[in-house]
Computed example of a mutant assay.
Amino acid sequence: MAATRILINDNGRQWDEENAKEDSPTSKKQIGAKWEGRFPLSKWELAAAVSVFSLFVIGLLCVYSTMPAAEYGNIKLPRSISDLRILKDHLANYAKDYQAQFILGYCSTYIFMQTFMIPGTIFMSLLAGALFGVIRGLLLVVFNATSGASSCYFLSKLIGRPLVSWLWPEKLRFFQAEIAKRREKLLNYMLFLRITPTLPNTFINVASPIVDIPFHVFFFATLIGLIPASYITVRAGLALGDLKSVRDLYDFKTLAMLFLIGSVSILPTILKRKRTYE
């Protein structure tokens, strides 16, 4: 049996030669390549995904079945600001008359969409502002976004690795390298990513367990980091008539403010590095 050489990296950590080969640039190019031409999930992983999805759908249907009757023909997931205005008009009285039931249905839908990366949660956030105002709307959005992101994290931990490697191989390699460089101040970096649009939130949700970000770091970074952008979106929901498209939410001024807030979160890391090199 061939002996395995032990290597030492710059941080003093040990790993064997076989693992070192896996971390080499040549092997990294193969991430995602092995999934080319075929669906990445095995039969077991696909069955697990379908089972989890089915459970969520059944739970969602159970919630809807307990809600008071409504004109469901007029209710659909919005895909544009004009759709959202129509939906808001149909739901305004319903949300006021059956507030508890409506909030339960709203939360269930938001978490379902966030868990399975279904586009449209930004419209749900705008709707929260339009129907509930800034404070209650913000609490609702942050709660649902954090719960849905956490649910997506655990789903990805179960079956996400082959799927993410197949869909976003380059982005995953970049994320993995950035996380490896920032292990000591991981919470600060995750806060920066959540506050700023550097990486899509959907990608962060599914890639975090794959690059070994601890759940407590993921959870607190999500809970705190989503507040600024959620506030902007919920506040915009109060004036749906002034919005022409979702792009109006994030103009240059808004993006600059988010990056400024995000920069504060990584300031301790920058200062520590500066002291180290002095």
Rank of each mutant, 00 (worst) to 15 (best):
R38I: 07
M113Q: 11
A20P: 04
V211Y: 10
L87W: 05
Q99K: 14
D248K: 01
T198G: 10
L172K: 13
G37M: 12
R136T: 12
L84N: 11
V206M: 15
I159D: 11
G59L: 08
R194P: 02
S54G: 10
V164T: 10
A207E: 12
S263Q: 05
S82M: 08
K181Q: 13
G32N: 05
M113N: 06
E178K: 13
L126D: 10
K29D: 12
G59E: 13
V52Y: 03
F39I: 04
V142A: 01
F39Y: 14
G59V: 09
M190P: 03
Y106V: 03
G59K: 14
K28M: 11
L271V: 09
A92C: 01
A229W: 00
T196A: 02
M113A: 12
R38N: 06
L223Q: 02
N205P: 05
Y110M: 05
S208L: 13
L104W: 14
W35Q: 15
I103R: 07
I179R: 12
K88R: 14
R235K: 15
F132C: 01
L140K: 06
D212Y: 11
N93F: 08
L167N: 02
L87M: 03
E18G: 00
L255R: 06
S125N: 08
N74S: 15
E71A: 05
L140S: 02
W15T: 06
T4A: 01
G262R: 01
M113Y: 13
Y277C: 00
D83W: 15
R79K: 13
E17F: 11
L271G: 00
G59D: 12
R247A: 02
L87A: 03
V206Y: 15
D83C: 07
L131A: 05
D97L: 13
D212M: 09
I210D: 06
L61P: 01
L127D: 09
L172S: 09
G12M: 11
L249I: 02
F53K: 12
R13F: 14
S265Q: 03
E184V: 09
T222E: 02
N9K: 14
T269P: 04
L41S: 00
F154W: 15
I31T: 13
L91T: 08
P200Q: 00
N74E: 15
R38V: 08
I195W: 11
F218S: 10
Y153V: 09
A207F: 12
I159A: 07
I31D: 09
I8W: 06
T269D: 14
D251L: 02
I103W: 14
F215A: 04
G237P: 12
I122N: 03
I86N: 10
L131D: 11
L172D: 07
V164C: 06
K28R: 15
A69C: 00
A256Q: 07
A92S: 08
D212T: 07
T196Q: 08
Q14R: 15
L87Q: 01
F252R: 12
F116Q: 14
R79N: 13
A221F: 08
V206K: 04
N188I: 04
